[in-house]
């Protein structure tokens, strides 16, 4: 028997090194997509309505919000000086992207706990687990997005070339939620309070981000001095404000994204992502001790 080539399968010294991450992830791509595929299959296998749920949920919420804003608070809605875009698509656009963000962050946070039998027993790059929970909701998002485009097309009869900005804006959303997911899942392993905090935080974020109202409303409120003006800048610190506004700009208004928001969200999401990768990698090797 000729000696086999000495390939290192596992070296404990390299496990904590950040440089190892891309290499590991490339090697583990099949595991990553296997996990995503597993989630998709398991979720819809016994649901009669199947992928329709990806639409039913945001539409129901949209109709509810539309009812609330069109009839209950009708007089309070400030008129905008821009092209009229129906409230329905505005809300729908906010909702499907917010839902992507919130479901990926919350499932990522709990993902290590949910997959603890894997983490405790099998060796593979652990990044795969939270990443799979931020990739999997893309399926729902895509279905919702197609639905949004069809509704938009029916109501406005036009689609803008600026849709291609999505190629930049969506990755920003993805890296931001992945980064948050990595950080929060790491923290959740050590401090189980994080899970509850995330739930509270996401509910808070739902109202504190321009999900079911456009950003203009906040600006109007501040300009009308019903709120102090610094509040508006505080509000803008939330990267989701920038992301959702830019998404609306290019999907609904057919305009280029606002450059300030674009740069700000790119910086924040990158920062978030690399911090996430760093913290996760440093801690991941000993996850199994704490689960």
């Amino acid at each position: 028997m000729n000696p086999l080539p000495k390939s290192v399968y596992y070296d404990s010294d390299k496990q904590k090194s950040i440089l190892q991450v891309p290499y590991d992830l490339i090697k583990a791509r099949e595991i990553l997509f296997g996990l995503v595929w597993k989630e998709i299959k398991a979720r819809y296998r016994y649901a009669i309505l199947g992928f329709l749920w990806a639409i039913i949920e945001p539409v129901t919420l949209m109709l509810l919000l539309l009812f609330v804003f069109s009839f209950v608070f009708k007089q309070r809605i400030p008129s905008t000086d821009r092209v009229e875009v129906p409230m329905a698509t505005q809300i729908l656009c906010g909702l499907i992207f917010w839902q992507y963000f919130s479901s990926s962050v919350s499932t990522a946070t709990f993902s290590l706990i949910n997959h603890q039998n894997l983490v405790k027993k099998v060796f593979f790059p652990r990044e795969v687990i939270p990443l799979s929970s931020t990739i999997y909701p893309i399926v729902n998002l895509s279905i919702g997005f197609i639905f949004l485009l069809s509704v938009h097309l029916i109501l406005q009869k036009t689609l803008s070339i600026h849709l291609f900005w999505l190629i930049i804006i969506f990755p920003i959303l993805f890296t931001f939620s992945s980064g948050l997911g990595l950080i929060l899942s790491t923290a959740h392993v050590h401090f189980r309070d994080i899970g509850n905090m995330v739930n509270v935080g996401l509910t808070f974020g739902f109202y504190a981000s321009p999900v079911f109202y456009p950003l203009d409303w906040v600006r109007h409120a501040c300009e009308n001095h019903s709120l102090p003006y610094w509040f508006y800048y505080l509000y803008l610190l939330n990267p989701m404000a920038g992301i959702l506004t830019n998404l609306r700009e290019c999907i609904l208004y057919g305009q280029a994204p606002q450059p300030f928001f674009l740069f700000y969200t790119i910086i924040i999401s990158m920062l978030c992502f690399f911090t996430g990768i760093y913290i996760f990698r440093k801690q991941s090797a000993t996850f199994s001790d704490y689960l």
Binding site: L4, S7, V8, Y9, Y10, F123
Partner: peptide
């Protein structure tokens, strides 16, 4: 490779399968 030593080093030159994870990661559905 499930957990890392606190100190010291371990190198493994070959793929490891542990029969300790029989059915770990099976999804019931």
């Amino acid at each position: 490779g499930v957990t890392l030593p606190t100190a010291g080093r371990i190198i493994v030159y070959g793929r490891v399968a542990s029969l300790l994870e029989l059915g770990a990661g099976f999804h019931p559905l």
